[in-house]
Simulated scan of single mutants.
Amino acid sequence: MTVRLLSPRRAAELRARPWTYPEVGQSRGDIPDGYKTFRRAAALPAGISFDTAADDLLTWRVQRSAGLRVTASEARVEPDTVVELGLGPFVTAPCRVVYVIDEPARRGFAYGTLPGHPERGEEAFVLDRREDGVITFTVTAFSRPASLLAKLAGPLGGLAQNAMTTRYLRTFDR
């Protein structure tokens, strides 16, 4: 599965949409109240280089490995990149990159939801390289239902999000 590129017109349309939540960027620190939240982490298997893992992360491999269709304005994650994530034939979730982390021992990004996404909120994907060389991959999110379908899903929505996060965290298991 590869990343398809959005047309310039579609990318501009998505960039013009407002965020669907006011706490843009808060996946970096204190998670706001009033949302379903989680933070899960896994150590990457030994032998995977930090640069290779970061390259995989920043080229949408995590989302593609989890089974999502990725149609983005850029093949590589950059600030303000817009993306439509597809799951099955009927669900399309538009998002925009909120921030990108590019530090010597820390790389990652977060995207936030745009109108048309079934949820409201933000999700961050971050790789950290510790001094002992262990690389940790952390997924942090806060969200609440935005669509009738997401509201009707109730607890099943949380189970689906947990299953997707497990898929994300297994991306680097080779």
Rank of each mutant, 00 (worst) to 15 (best):
Y21A: 12
P22W: 14
E23T: 13
R28H: 12
G29E: 05
I31S: 07
D33K: 15
Y35T: 06
K36I: 14
T37H: 13
A41G: 13
A43G: 08
A43C: 14
P45T: 10
A46N: 13
G47A: 10
I48T: 13
I48H: 15
D51H: 07
L57Q: 10
R61F: 12
G67K: 10
G67F: 13
L68A: 11
A72K: 02
E74Y: 02
R76P: 02
D80L: 01
V82A: 06
V83L: 02
L85H: 03
G86T: 00
L87R: 04
G88I: 02
G88D: 03
F90G: 02
V91N: 04
A93R: 00
A93N: 09
R96K: 08
V100H: 07
P104H: 00
A105E: 12
A105G: 07
R107F: 09
R107M: 07
R107C: 04
A110L: 12
L114P: 00
P115A: 08
P115M: 04
P115Q: 07
G116F: 07
G116E: 07
G116Q: 10
H117P: 00
P118R: 03
E119V: 02
E119A: 05
R120K: 15
E122V: 03
E122I: 01
E123D: 07
F125D: 05
L127G: 00
R130Q: 03
R130P: 00
